[in-house]
Design a protein around this nucleic acid. Sequence first.
RNA 1: GGCCCAUUCGUCUAGCGGACUAGGACGCCGCCCUCUCAAGGCGGAGAUCGCGGGUUCGAACCCCGCAUGGGCCA
Length: 502
Amino acid sequence: MTVRVRFAPSPTGFLHVGGLRTALFNWLFAQKMGGTFILRLEDTDQKRYTPGGVRAIVEGLQWLGLQWNEGPDKASLRQMQGDEDWAGAPDVGGPYGPYIQSLKVKRHQAAAQELIEKGMAYRCDCTAERLAQVREGQKARKEQTRYDRHCRFKQPGEVDPNQPHVVRLAVPLEGSTTVHDLIRGEITVDYSQLDDFVILKSDGFPTYHLAAMVDDHDMQITHVLRGDEWLPSLPRHYLIYQAFGWEPPAFAHLPVILNPSGKGKMSKRKATSADAVFVTEFRDEGYLPEALRNFLALVGWAPGSGNEQEIFALDELIQLFSLAHVNPAPAAFSYDKLDWMNGMYIRALPADELAKRIYPFLIKAGVEVDTERLLKITPDIQERLVTLSDAVEATDFLFVEDVSPNPVQLIGKGLTKESTLAILKQAEQIIDAFEPFEAEPLELAFRSAAEAAGMKPGPFFTPMRVAVTGKAVSPPLFGSIVALGREKTIARLKNAQQLLAG
RNA sequence: GGCCCAUUCGUCUAGCGGACUAGGACGCCGCCCUCUCAAGGCGGAGAUCGCGGGUUCGAACCCCGCAUGGGCCA
């Protein structure tokens, strides 16, 4: 049997890193097993739907390179609440559609009906007031609050199907069930812990429990890899499969991702405002998708067996991935390590490719980019970038008319105004006619100049650096000068001299 | 409150009964390299394997309690 897995997010408007990680593991597992990766939109809970939610999911997955084999087509996307439709909308489709939960409500209702007929579920018309009363009585007696199964033993027809009611699953009154998790092993739960939970709400919509199980079955899902927060409801899900007489898929519950502090689930509210949580934020801050993907693969998973590698090409990741090496313990999200990894990926990029990726970040920052200069400086800033957006600050001096050096920085440590002026003047003269106008020969020339002046290169270069780039910390000086061009360099050297003299 | 899951350096992890003087990575510290900043190289500190009991000739590894953290439900 071929493996079929699914990623089934709610279109809430954002794709959270936790969700992305779940998607990644599903995708990796599918690739590894030569299986099918399915995208399904779980939009049944109307409250959680926000316009643009589908888009956030689609773009997030595509950005990371997680293409699905089956999923919503354009027509059903258009039918969906909110009339989701945009130019880049995916049109994947597949034989087990629709892949949008709200479009299957009829199917879910029929499924509930089927269970009623089988005697595995029943209609319940208990009012909210009665339910509250029962709950309070239980509280007063310090019992577990749960539905008291009042309607379970009513005569057939006693609950009017045409009046508002819910449908509840008839949970076995005694005994226990053993559920299996691929990561944690067997878990036994006593039926007395479960109550007759609702599978169809009074508005006719299915609950998650019913809808997801029916859809998983309809789509012939073989492995459910989902967040660990679903583990407590696994017994209910087994019960639903049993009620229908279906064979349940294999389940694997992935550990949650915790805040960097390790306290509490990773969330926007708990994270420092600067910390990214949503996929779009990582993208906009200049993380490379391949770096985030590599990093995310390592939260909760490691190749194991003595393999200490951490940077993986995609095909290696697929090759090595295994559920057996998923760590069941929750893991804190380390921005430090992500930063390091992003830097590794940036340095591994060919320079022209890097320049291409940097370009949109400069444009977005309002920079008037001179492509030729960008191309020239890229190799010099490559090992200095943590994220792509760092390039804005690293290259700003190249794309403005003038810089405004700070006189205090201009006169470096151990220098005077006079000696600084002399250095700038000399620099101007050397650069004026220097050939070839390339970083290495320039550097050699200036090194001999420094030596002739009886100075170490560092202090000698400082006034030039500040004059040309406007700051004390910059990319390598001669690469910067070459990228800027002879004319502008000389103008800035003159400018700095004027600044000091005046 | 009930139930479920988890627990190895600050963090991510390797480890599946003897190979552990517990390995690697991020971060941190130091040195080297060096035109600033990085990157890179080398080295260092950092874990009585949450605690207590068992099982065993032998336990980070198996079992039981407890504690703590997390999650779900209310």
